[in-house]
Design a binder for these strands. Sequence first.
DNA 1: TATTGTTATACTCTATAACTATA
DNA 2: TATAGTTATAGAGTATAACAATA
Lengths: 144, 144
Amino acid sequence: MSYAKHMDSIQHLANDLRMACQQVSRRVRFESGSELAPHHASVLFKLLDGPRTPGELAELDRISAPSMTRTVNCLAERGLVDTRDHPSDGRSKLVVLTEAGRTLLDATVQARDDWMVRKLQGLAKDELTVLVEATGLLNRVLEQ
Amino acid sequence: MSYAKHMDSIQHLANDLRMACQQVSRRVRFESGSELAPHHASVLFKLLDGPRTPGELAELDRISAPSMTRTVNCLAERGLVDTRDHPSDGRSKLVVLTEAGRTLLDATVQARDDWMVRKLQGLAKDELTVLVEATGLLNRVLEQ
DNA sequence: TATTGTTATACTCTATAACTATA
DNA sequence: TATAGTTATAGAGTATAACAATA
């Protein structure tokens, strides 16, 4: 395979793989029937590892601080998060996942995974093996 | 491999693969620097194959007809689409991509593909082969 | 009478600017 | 003086309900 052709095939792969990933991402949201808006789910996910300040959450989701204030208030009213005083900075606070928040998040993850499992169920074992390897590769390139 | 273990591995794969696809989808949007909002890009993409009525566009993107009216008006003001009379239905119209719309869309696709190419560039040939096969499998399961 | 698209209106998420409290 | 978060206000995208024109 020539250098040029190799490059060309990378570009084709880049386009096809990107579009396939975007399709999966879009359809899992539409078709898994979540009760959780994307930006709400996104915040709750980030609280799984532990408490975060509103500022951290805003930066992680690339939205403004006032927008995150609103989102956190909304999640708190729904009982999905609580806020605590920050242990070392009196200006700040910590947002933590409640039991209800964790339960709803678990259900959301499960619904999305169920959708994906249904899609994968028709595949042969060697095809699943290819996807396992591909997932590892994707995670590796995403670290860049 | 037992049945139970096989099922378990499918669930793990489903979760890992879904999250990897969502990461790709999210990061390609954030990091490829598009001038085109997602819902605008989505409409322009659907016009690549040919003209569509506003109703068709609304249904394809799962938004209401009034929302699509607004989006089409906005795209028309930016010169990215034009509207024509529908040839056989006087109530309807056809939305068509302009030359400027096609140019911007091409640039958007190229920026996203370039992002993906950069991610893939460190991989070996056999790893790229795995991703080519995986892409085919993803497209197959997405047809379901 | 049913359907396509638009207008009227309202709600949500986003942003920037101005403000309060603390570092 | 700088920083974390909130409040005030506005813009954009979405929705439902009511309306116009055509099938």
